[in-house]
Simulated scan of single mutants.
Amino acid sequence: MLDNLHDGHNTEFLYYDQHAEWDVDEAPVGLEAAAILLRSTAFFTRSSRGFCASDDNGFQRVCGAVSRLNTQEKTMRFTGKTALVTGGNSGIGFTTAKLLIAEGARVAITGRDRTKLDQAVADLGANSLGIQADLDDETAVESAFKQIKEVFGSLDIVFANAGISGPTPLGGTTAAAFEAILRTNLTGVFLTVQAALPLMGVGGSVILNGSVMRELGSPGSAAYSATKAGVTGMAKVFASELVQRGIRVNTVIPGGTRTPIWTRGARAGATLDATEEALAPAIPMARLATPEEVAKAVLFLASDDASGITAAEIVVDGGTIGAPRGAPMYRKA
Rank of each mutant, 00 (worst) to 15 (best):
320 T>I: 12
41 T>I: 03
252 V>R: 01
192 T>C: 04
300 F>D: 04
31 L>W: 03
175 A>M: 00
295 A>G: 01
91 G>T: 05
313 E>S: 13
289 A>E: 10
326 G>Y: 07
30 G>V: 10
3 D>Q: 09
176 A>Q: 14
98 K>E: 13
74 K>T: 14
151 V>N: 02
253 I>M: 13
184 T>K: 06
308 G>L: 12
323 A>H: 13
187 T>H: 10
128 S>L: 02
316 V>H: 02
266 A>I: 08
126 A>E: 14
59 F>T: 05
294 V>N: 11
62 V>G: 09
280 A>S: 15
189 V>M: 15
296 K>W: 00
169 P>W: 07
278 A>W: 09
173 T>E: 03
254 P>V: 11
270 A>Q: 15
112 R>Y: 04
27 A>N: 11
126 A>L: 09
15 Y>R: 13
151 V>L: 01
173 T>C: 07
327 A>G: 09
115 T>P: 01
273 D>C: 08
205 S>Q: 05
316 V>L: 05
6 H>E: 06
38 L>C: 11
26 E>M: 00
284 P>G: 08
173 T>D: 06
186 L>P: 03
52 C>K: 02
213 M>V: 15
281 P>N: 09
4 N>K: 05
306 A>V: 08
183 R>Y: 01
212 V>R: 06
314 I>V: 10
278 A>S: 15
273 D>A: 15
204 G>M: 03
249 V>N: 03
148 I>Y: 14
172 G>F: 11
108 A>K: 09
